[in-house]
Design a protein around this nucleic acid. Structure first.
Length: 351
DNA sequence: AAGGCGGGGCT
DNA sequence: AGCCCAGCCTT
């Protein structure tokens, strides 16, 4: 079958005319491309860009990033979410700096072995930095291809993943993979958008299957997502006369691994102050404080913090005590990496 | 093969 | 409030 180079020609024409001027488009240094690609996983450019600027300024080389503490990296990552990306980023930086003399692997296969680098990211780096003819398939590519060819296979099914990867490989312009890959993703992000795509001015308007079938908005097809779990978190904000408080780091599995938060009592449902007092007395948090404490509720109605897979109904209980043993000064709270939920509380509550 | 992992934007 | 976005890792 003859390769359809006309698709590439139209696509790259569009890209050269409409592409955004983004900082990582002025380099092919694998360190910067890797950094941008990790940050842009599940993240839009508008959200990731400030972080990219902060990281490239703070860590101009992979050696700078490798030398930083994980705590500092997490602090700089704070608010970007999916914090395993930051932990893997740091681990890979240390590996590349210390074991590989600062040199990233120079092909798809090698890149794929790096922690936090999967099929998409390895393809992106290999094509952009080394012009290796490997096809990227991200959310944008799924959308463009499913519409252009009118494919209704669910993109998050095993069959769909294989099908779209094969399709992207077939379509890839092997003479200019860097340009082609960036063009198809930019086209999906800016023109063939999920909502309100610009079909009226689309360069593929006479060949797009979905447009011919008036099926654009129902593509791509996706399998049902997971159910959302409700959780009830009761944060205990200890506050001593000399303005100390207590925080702890989240360890083990679950959300916000490595980040800090106030001591927390999780319950099955929303609880009253009476119920809280009872649970607090029974908890080990009350063990090392004086019996004379005063409890007040910061937020009368629960603060709802939504993650993609769970909704957190949160109450902040202010517990004033005379003295606190293993506490930190409240003015140091700003130095710790914390979830957005906690960061917002710190802004709203005047210590 | 399925589920866990953030946070933001839109309606 | 509920909807959408979406790559990698673990189980």
């Amino acid at each position: 079958m003859q390769k359809d180079l006309n698709f590439s020609k139209i696509l790259i024409n569009w890209y050269l005319k409409y592409k955004r001027d983004l900082p990582w488009r002025h380099t092919t240094d694998p360190y910067f491309i890797w950094l941008s690609e990790i940050m842009l996983q599940q993240t839009q450019v508008a959200q990731g860009l400030p972080y990219y600027l902060k990281f490239t300024e703070t860590y101009p080389t992979v050696f700078h990033l490798a030398k930083a503490s994980q705590e500092e990296v997490l602090k700089n990552w704070q608010g970007l979410g999916y914090y395993s990306r930051a932990r893997n980023l740091h681990e890979t930086a240390k590996y590349v700096a210390n074991e590989r003399d600062g040199k990233f692997p120079e092909d798809y296969k090698g890149l794929l072995r790096l922690k936090g680098v999967g099929d998409y990211t390895a393809s992106a780096i290999a094509s952009i930095c080394y012009n290796e003819p490997v096809a990227v398939v991200d959310g944008n590519v799924y959308r463009v291809l499913s519409r252009y060819f009118g494919i209704e296979t669910p993109i998050n099914s095993t069959k769909g993943i294989k099908e779209f990867k094969a399709m992207a490989e077939l379509l890839l312009d092997e003479n200019q993979p860097a340009l082609f890959n960036q063009a198809i993703m930019e086209f999906g992000a800016r023109h063939c958008k999920p909502k309100n795509p610009f079909c009226d001015t689309c360069p593929f308007s006479d060949s797009c299957k979905a447009l011919q079938d008036d099926n654009v908005l129902s593509l791509p097809v996706k399998l049902k997502k997971t159910t959302i779990k409700k959780r009830y978190l009761n944060y205990i904000v200890l506050l001593s006369d000399n303005e100390n408080t207590q925080i702890k780091q989240r360890v083990g599995k679950g959300i916000w691994q490595g980040l800090y938060e106030f001591p927390c009592i999780e319950t099955k449902k929303d609880i009253s102050e009476t119920e809280f007092l009872s649970l607090f007395k029974a908890s080990d948090i009350s063990n090392d404080i004086n019996e004379n404490y005063n409890v007040s509720l910061f937020n009368d109605a629960s603060i709802v913090h939504k993650l993609s897979h769970q909704h957190l109904y949160t109450k902040f209980w202010i517990v004033r005590v005379s003295t606190l043993n293993d506490g930190i000064p409240t003015h140091q709270l700003k130095d710790y990496p914390v979830p957005v939920l906690i960061a917002r509380f710190l802004e709203d509550f005047s210590f």
